[in-house]
């Protein structure tokens, strides 16, 4: 067994062990922390699969922002576990369920083991048409050109998720400040960190968005890091969360899908198809769209993590 194989196997074991921990652990908080650790490990697996764009997304969203969301939820839901514990199905049911789940796993494992290598692929097709998109990163080309509709609709999903979260507000708080009220302690290490990290984070985020056209990276990963920086500032109480009635906030939230849609419609006129880019302008247009998408993502993610408005704006 070579070193790399040993490394892969131990990584897989570690991933599974942490995953099992998040399922069986008694304490919800411990399970959530396990899940954050799991996300970090999975992004290592993605690097091993040579899918760096995915690794970046997993690190930013899968473990980073999701982790924060779940950690604060676990803290707020402290003490609800005991009541729910009575609803556990009996041991027999659990064994049966585990057995049935194992059948599903076995079927998938059989599929994995019989998968041909090399397998079916669209990589040659993507390579052939990559030049037409003027991009260097094939994943960005798929997201922004070949399968642009899916990316556009995914941005609409994000937009709808924000509406969904907001719509849970109490009627009187509509238009108010997003998220629960926070204490006003501005002292301490947290505030220091919140002043230290964002400048670095903003530079890194811009870098990741910019290189996304040619190297791994892109709007979502960069936007997620920007979002994290904004959330740190809000959490450290250096800035107030925005009121959801604010015009600027709303425009920032729809800017990404709206600009994408507008550029797509422009394709009717200048490139004879919806979501097509005119030759010679593809890359600048894609970067243009990505800038607005980054903005929308950077604003949407904090809205999703903060939750519905909890008090009217003053």
């Amino acid at each position: 067994m070579s070193v790399i194989q040993a490394l892969d196997i131990s990584l897989a074991v570690l991933v599974l062990a942490v995953a099992i921990w998040t399922i069986v652990s008694r304490d919800a908080f411990a399970a959530v922390v396990g899940y954050v650790a799991y996300g970090l490990l999975v992004s290592l697996v993605w690097v091993r699969l040579f899918a760096v764009d995915v690794a970046l997304t997993e690190a930013a969203i899968g473990s980073g922002v999701t982790g924060v969301l779940l950690i604060s939820a676990a803290v707020r839901l402290r003490g609800t576990e005991a009541a729910v514990a009575a609803e556990w199905p009996g041991a027999g049911s659990r064994v049966l369920a585990a057995a049935l789940c194992m059948v599903v796993t076995a079927a998938l494992a059989a599929v994995v083991l019989t998968m041909p290598d090399p397998g079916a692929t669209l990589a040659p097709e993507a390579a052939r048409h990559l030049a037409e998109t003027e991009l260097g990163n094939p994943v960005t080309a798929v997201l922004m050109a070949f399968r642009a509709l899916d990316t556009l609709l995914e941005k609409v999903v994000l937009f709808l998720a924000v509406i969904g979260v907001w719509s849970l507000a109490a009627d009187g708080n509509w238009g108010g400040i997003a998220g629960p009220r926070r204490a006003t302690n501005r002292q301490g290490a947290l505030a220091f960190l919140a002043q230290l990290l964002p400048p670095v984070g903003i530079v890194v985020a811009i870098h990741i968005v910019w290189i996304g056209a040619n190297e791994p990276g892109g709007a979502f990963q960069g936007g997620a890091i920007l979002a994290a920086m904004w959330m740190i500032v809000i959490m450290a109480r250096l800035a107030e969360a925005p009121a959801i009635g604010e015009r600027r906030l709303r425009l920032a939230l729809v800017a990404g899908p709206a600009v994408f849609l507008a550029v797509g419609l422009m394709g009717f006129a200048v490139a004879n198809a919806f979501l097509a880019y005119p030759a010679g302008l593809a890359k600048p247009l894609i970067v243009f769209v990505e800038v607005f998408m980054t903005l929308s993502i950077a604003v949407s993610l904090p809205m999703l993590v903060l939750g519905p408005p909890d008090r009217p704006s003053s």
Binding site: V139, D150, E154
Partner: peptide, 21 residues
């Protein structure tokens, strides 16, 4: 994606894009 490595790409970009979505 990895088994679809071809044409100089270490992994098929289409499944990668789907995972990101």
């Amino acid at each position: 994606a990895r088994k679809g490595a071809a044409a100089g790409f270490a992994a098929d970009p289409v499944p990668q894009a789907m995972v990101i979505t």
